[in-house]
């Protein structure tokens, strides 16, 4: 982490140093060309769509905008989205911390396999992820008949959506923690035990505080993905209005029904979520690189 922090802090210094030094300074047109290309690209592909979302959302006035948000189907979609995130993020938090802890602090057979497995949701298409659940829990699937007999609905119902969300957001927290915990090693934990701390005390007082910023960072990303997930959820949802529609699915339906203003209004909520996530992420990054907080490794 020290190197990360160092490069983070030194970045602006290096830039100005390169500029001040005639030996490394590029000519003005190179500088402005590179900056120009970067900014143009950023504007066309990132900034314009973001602005468009809000412009389109308010095209028919604020009244239509808020009406689209408080409409029952929209409210239901918002509730379901929050529910899915509220279940999947804590579950992945517990799983992510335990997996990272096991991988970083212990040696066991099958460790590399577990690391690869954690990455699976990143490498597999979300649609395939959704299909997997349909194959397992759907009517024609492995457990379909049994679930049907007991009147448990997974696919085309809320449990399926939660499962799909958990699957796609699986790696975020674990991936964030593993490298950091590996870099920190076991010394501090060993020191804690040798001072008489129990396993639980060591975990809460040493292990978790050491990774808290990375943990928070992982949770933020995990949450953003959980709320924004479309592909996997779309497959298992069944698109029942007011019941199994999450916000992204609701946006799609509205759009397909030519209710552009309403679609963009709901989309603007997701865009806002993204902006809030970015602000939080930047804050957490800034906090975790602050040396005064004692976060730096020597």
């Amino acid at each position: 982490m020290a190197t990360v922090a160092a490069t983070f802090d030194a970045r602006s210094d290096t830039a100005s140093k390169f500029e001040a030094n005639p030996a490394t300074r590029d000519s003005a047109w190179v500088k402005y060309l590179v900056i120009g290309v970067g900014l143009t690209y950023f504007t066309i592909f990132l900034l314009l769509p973001l602005i468009a979302v809000f412009v389109e959302a308010f095209r028919k006035g604020a009244g239509t905008y808020f009406a689209a948000l408080v409409e029952p189907d929209a409210l239901s979609a918002i509730r379901l989205t929050i529910l899915a995130a509220a279940i999947s993020v804590p579950l992945n938090l517990v799983f992510g911390v335990s997996a990272a802890w096991a991988i970083a602090k212990f040696q066991f057979p099958g460790k590399n396999f577990l690391i690869t497995l954690i990455d699976l949701p990143f490498s597999v298409s979300p649609v395939v992820a959704g299909l997997i659940y349909v194959l397992v829990f759907g009517l024609q699937g492995w457990f379909g008949p049994w679930l049907n007999e007991h009147d448990i609905k997974v696919i085309f119902a809320v449990p399926g959506i939660v499962l799909a969300t958990i699957f796609v957001t699986f790696p975020f927290i674990a991936r964030e923690l593993i490298p950091l915990m590996q870099a920190q090693g076991r010394d501090e934990e060993e020191a804690a035990i040798s001072l008489g701390a129990s396993g639980l005390q060591t975990f809460w007082r040493v292990t978790i505080p050491n990774v808290k910023w990375a943990l928070l960072y992982g949770v933020i990303l995990c949450n953003a993905r959980a709320m924004g997930e479309f592909g996997a959820v779309s497959v298992v949802s069944g698109h029942i209005r007011g019941e199994t529609n999450t916000m992204p699915l609701h946006v799609e339906i509205l759009y397909n029904e030519y209710q552009f203003a309403a679609a963009f209004a709901v989309a603007s909520l997701l865009a806002l979520l993204a902006l809030v996530t970015l602000v939080l992420k930047t804050y957490v990054e800034w906090r975790s690189h602050r040396p005064v907080a004692g976060e730096q490794v020597s």
Binding site: A191, R205, A293, S298
Partner: peptide, 14 residues
């Protein structure tokens, strides 16, 4: 036993 580590192993957040 009191154990002192080569790389100190001080709790960095305390």
């Amino acid at each position: 036993v009191g154990f002192v580590f080569q790389h100190y192993a001080l709790f960095r957040h305390m």
